[in-house]
Design a binder for these strands. Structure first.
Length: 428
RNA sequence: GCCCCGAUAGUGUAGCGGCCUAUCAUACAGGCCUGUCGAGCCUGUGACACGGGUUCAAAUCCCGUUCGGGGCGCCA
């Protein structure tokens, strides 16, 4: 008589003695019968107590969300309309829950963001929230499987670093023994160095830190970045790999969890390949057609991307960005130095990936660093990797939370983060 | 960093100068109830973020603080 999960009750014939454990979601005591709605990670079932004054006595002291173990007989033809039914023969309180709950799991009232994230573990017990993280895991698994099949090596690079990656974004400062250091904004420089180290296909899934004091539905101060870098490749190769990744991630999600997600109100749409591509200059044309003023060399704002995104269905690339808006390591086009061999992957107005073919000539790299107002001396550890045979290479960085947000159509990025770090929140 | 908006029981809300000894739902405690399934019914406990000010009178108006929500910039 071992423990069984609620989802597996469906495989039983009826009449078996079983043990089942989980949280007491609701306790209803009527005159002649007592019910406990029991929830585990796989579903809910109804535990019925009839007669048995001992058990009723025990049940009457239970509080919602207490952890209990039930033994009983599975009833194939239970009377319950909503859940499989178990006739209770034993009830053990494993750990009581305090009362009242700061956040009811099944209460009809919605809680505010603040309340939800202050009591995140209770919030995550709600199936609709809980499944988000199985979905995120599933997407990531789809991508990991693809990358590994394609011969990529998963690596781990330092998160405590001595210089800011790109000069632009704000960085968190940390004390590192007697030195000052920073939390890495991106594995960019390290994954490029690994190309020179003879690992021609690398990928990393890890945290990235940005100290910007943003307050939006799509920014976190700590997020998960999926980064890849591939040798002897150009921007087009990187884009094809990216397309495949997004496709495989969402396909995996759809195959493994599509039905389950649907019952909780999520609709998964697997994107069609190839994703449409649009030049930066075509974007400008769209804006001009909509009577929006735009200066060549500027980045598109959210408002601009809303207009451009409304013309596109789902995922699309914006390519050919001007060099002013791209980092120093981005390669310029041979035929026109004003433009770069770079791309963003967009979904409507949301940017989920930024990538490019990179500069591989160390002299060009130093020139570009200076042009961007950065001191090449601070990047010597990086540039030196380019002096002794650096292959041409390309890659990108993809925001896992943003991809999950899109796949599940969730408005706020904090919802797809277990314990989000935003402008003010450092706990839990 | 900038611009809006907000803060009332555990949770979510109503009230927007005197009728507030503050509404309702839910939760919580107790009771009733032939099997509930958003169960139902009865009783009870429980709140105006903080500090100043205006006024005969402040939950309500003004200022500040703290915290939160949305948007912008920036980006993944």
């Amino acid at each position: 008589m071992s423990r069984i999960s609620i989802a597996d009750l469906g495989d039983l014939k009826g009449g078996e003695n079983i043990t089942i454990s989980g949280w007491a979601q609701e306790i209803k005591i009527l005159k002649s019968v007592t019910f406990i709605i029991l929830r585990d990670s796989t579903g809910v079932c109804q535990v019925t107590i009839k007669g048995e004054p001992n058990l009723i006595e025990k049940a009457s002291t239970l509080t919602r969300e207490s952890v209990i173990m039930i033994t009983g007989t599975f009833k194939k033809d239970g009377i319950s309309k909503s859940a499989p039914e178990i006739a209770c023969t034993g009830l053990t309180l494993l750990n009581p829950a305090g009362t009242p709950l700061p956040l009811g799991i099944t209460d009809p009232v919605e809680a505010d963001f603040e309340t939800r994230f202050n009591n995140r573990i209770l919030d995550l017990r709600k199936p609709k929230n809980n499944i988000i993280f199985r979905a995120k895991s599933s997407i990531l698994w789809g991508i990991r499987k693809l990358m590994t099949d394609e011969g990529f090596v998963e690596v781990q690079t330092p998160k405590i670093v001595s210089s800011a990656t790109e000069g632009g974004a704000e960085v968190f400062r940390v004390k590192y023994h007697e030195k000052d250091a920073f939390l890495n904004q991106s594995p960019q420089l390290y994954k490029e160095m690994l190309i020179s180290a003879g690992i021609p296909k690398v990928f990393e899934v890890g945290p990235a830190f940005r100290a910007e004091e943003h307050n939006t539905n799509r920014h976190l101060n700590e997020f998960t970045s999926i980064d890849i870098e591939m040798a002897f490749s150009n921007d087009d190769d990187a884009m094809q790999m990216l397309e495949l990744c997004v496709y495989q991630g969402i396909t995996e999600l759809m195959d493994k969890m599509g039905k389950e997600l649907e019952t909780l109100g999520y609709k998964i749409v697997v994107p069609k390949k190839p994703f449409p591509r649009m030049e930066y200059t075509e974007g400008i044309k769209i804006l001009e057609e909509n009577n929006v003023k735009f200066n060549f060399g500027d980045d598109f704002s959210s408002e601009h991307l809303k207009i451009i995104g409304s013309k596109m269905d789902g995922f699309y690339f914006i390519t050919g960005w001007p060099e002013q808006v791209r980092p120093f390591y981005t390669m310029q086009r041979d035929d026109d130095q004003r433009f770069t061999k770079s791309f963003d992957l967009q979904y409507k107005e949301l940017e989920i990936t930024s990538g490019a073919q990179r500069v591989h000539d160390p002299n060009v790299l130093i020139k570009r660093l200076k042009e961007k107002g950065l001191n090449p001396e601070n990047f010597e550890y990086y540039v030196s990797a380019f002096r002794y045979g650096m292959p041409p290479h390309a890659g990108w960085g993809l925001g896992l939370e943003r991809l999950t947000q899109i796949a599940l159509n969730i408005h706020n990025i904090r919802e797809v983060t277990l314990f989000p770090r935003d402008r003010t929140r450092v706990t839990p």
